[in-house]
Nucleic acid binder design. Structure first.
Length: 271
DNA sequence: CTTTTGACCTGACAGC
DNA sequence: TGCTGTCAGGTCAAAA
């Protein structure tokens, strides 16, 4: 589920529900996530006011005074809002009850997600400190990418997904951005010219923006909706389309594996 | 430093 | 109906 657009869509759904609200109860059902949910979390969070919900890479950051509740969705995590909470089911990990009566429930079957309590400044935490710029940061431009990739012989797709170079580009979005930019995923990063990197960062931004817009169109139903912003509406160009005709030129989409992840591309449109 | 690999988990699905 | 193998949108830590 969660690439950057879905995390951002969730954040936008949460802001009007959570910001300014006080946490009246925190219930942990299952502490087993990527790292165990800290013992002190309930005590730290309960009774406090959520002053903001930010996003850094694919992390959601709930600002509580000078401290921060960090939530990551891993591969299968989701946060849903309910006015009437359904009974707890398998894979439900925790509830946060707000003074408005709304309950935020986190579910994560595969348990690759995280729930952590960060002391100030949150950005100094090791998980956040090593992150590269956000794709939408004006500083994350072609010149930056050019300089940062000159010694990197790794395939551009793997570089795109390296959170130390730039953050938040997941597997689907990397595939889709590369076809938009007309760049072969296996091209060594250091071989790309400034001009091609300019096309690439533009494609990354448009890919993410489109996905956020699609997810955002379902946000009015965020409370009691069962979550799941509407990415089923997205039509991918290459992802999951191995063997099918390219929507532009009709060539058969090819696929391979890079770093253990599925890559697909159009052999004609991407050079 | 860069790059590769394994590890963490459960569930869905294809094929026998 | 069950079993087995493969795959899944993330990313950290260790090894090369």
């Amino acid at each position: 589920m969660p690439e950057l657009p879905e995390v951002e869509t969730t954040r936008r759904g949460l802001v009007p529900l959570a910001v300014g609200r006080r946490v009246v109860a925190t219930t942990i059902y299952d502490r087993r996530l990527r790292w165990p949910v800290p013992r002190a979390l309930e005590k730290n969070l309960t009774g406090r006011v959520i002053e903001g919900v930010d996003r850094r890479s694919k992390y959601l950051l709930f600002r509580v005074g000078h401290e921060t509740l960090l939530v990551h969705f891993g591969m299968t995590g989701s946060l849903q809002a309910f006015t009437r909470v359904p009974p707890r089911t398998a894979h439900d990990h925790f509830d946060i009850v707000l003074d408005s009566g709304i309950t935020l429930r986190y579910r994560d079957p595969r348990r690759f997600g995280a729930l952590l309590w960060l002391k100030a400044p949150a950005e100094a935490h090791p998980l956040l400190a090593s992150l590269g710029p956000e794709p939408f940061d004006p500083a994350c431009d072609a010149r930056y990418l050019w300089g940062a990739t000159r010694r990197r012989k790794t395939a551009i797709k793997l570089a795109l997904m390296d959170n130390g170079l730039l953050t938040g580009v997941g597997n689907i979005d990397a595939n889709e951005a590369l076809v938009r930019a007309g760049i072969r995923p296996t091209t060594p990063a250091h071989r790309l010219s400034l001009a091609r990197l300019a096309r690439l960062i533009d494609a990354v931004r448009r890919t993410l923006e489109d996905a956020i817009a699609k997810g955002g169109s379902t946000l009015r139903d965020y409370v009691d909706s069962g979550g799941e912003p509407g990415y089923f509406q997205l039509e991918y160009s290459v992802y999951g389309r191995e063997g099918l005709p390219c929507r532009v030129c009709g060539s058969a989409i090819k696929s391979l594996r890079q770093g253990g992840r599925a890559t697909s591309y159009c052999p004609h449109c991407q050079r």
